[in-house]
Simulated assay, not measured.
Amino acid sequence: MFGKSSHTFEINYIYQNDPRAVTYDADVGSLSQGAAARHLIELHNGDAENSLVMPDADADEARLLEQADVMDITDIRVTRVHKQEKGETPGHYKQP
């Protein structure tokens, strides 16, 4: 918040055979597939009564992806979204 820059990521994935996309803001410069998988698991199952489906806090990348696959969250792709500053116009829109 103060002095920290926030980065936006787009996460594309398939959930129960349905392609989906969400945006995610983070204070890190890159977001791994495992971190994205943790976010998606929490997004789709965070209010589940059975906490056994949630991964451990110290779960590694492979375990997070495995857990996501069990929960039918697959094909996770993470792309960093570059924010355009207010008032900036892309060059191809500028007149000579």
Rank of each mutant, 00 (worst) to 15 (best):
D58L: 10
N45K: 08
K83D: 11
F9Q: 04
V78N: 03
D60Q: 07
L43F: 15
G91F: 09
G3L: 02
V81S: 01
V70S: 04
M1S: 02
G29N: 09
D75Y: 12
A59M: 03
E49I: 06
D58A: 13
S32K: 05
A37C: 08
A21K: 15
K86L: 11
E88R: 08
L52C: 04
T8F: 04
T8K: 14
V78K: 07
M71G: 00
K94H: 07
D56E: 13
Q84K: 15
V70D: 07
K86M: 08
Y13M: 04
D47H: 09
F2I: 10
Q95H: 11
M1E: 01
E10S: 14
D25Q: 13
V28C: 06
R80T: 09
A35T: 12
A26N: 01
I14E: 09
I14G: 00
N50I: 08
I14A: 02
I76V: 14
L65M: 15
E42C: 09
N12A: 14
D27Y: 03
L31I: 04
A57G: 09
H7P: 00
I73S: 09
Q67G: 00
Q16H: 14
A37R: 06
V28I: 14
A57I: 13
T89F: 05
H7S: 10
D69H: 12
L64K: 03
E61D: 15
G3V: 00
S5P: 02
M71L: 15
S32H: 01
I73R: 02
L52I: 05
S32Y: 01
V78D: 09
G34Q: 07
P19L: 10
Q95N: 12
F2K: 12
Y24I: 08
T79N: 13
G29D: 12
G91Y: 06
D60H: 12
V70P: 00
Q84T: 14
Y93S: 00
D69E: 15
R38K: 14
N17H: 11
G87T: 07
S6R: 10
H7G: 01
D56H: 10
A57V: 14
A37H: 08
Q84S: 11
H7A: 04
G91K: 12
Y24P: 01
D47K: 05
D72C: 11
N12S: 15
Y15R: 12
V28L: 03
E85I: 05
N45I: 01
A62V: 11
I14D: 07
G87R: 02
D69S: 15
V70C: 06
Q95P: 04
Q84V: 15
K86Y: 08
A68T: 09
Y24F: 13
A35C: 03
M1T: 01
H92L: 07
Y13S: 04
H82K: 14
Y93M: 12
M1G: 04
S32Q: 01
S51N: 10
I76S: 09
D25I: 14
L52D: 09
H92R: 11
A68S: 09
V22E: 05
G3K: 01
Q84G: 05
D47W: 11
D47L: 12
A68F: 12
V28R: 08
Y15T: 03
G91N: 10
D58K: 15
L64P: 00
Q84C: 08
E85M: 09
Y13P: 02
A62K: 08
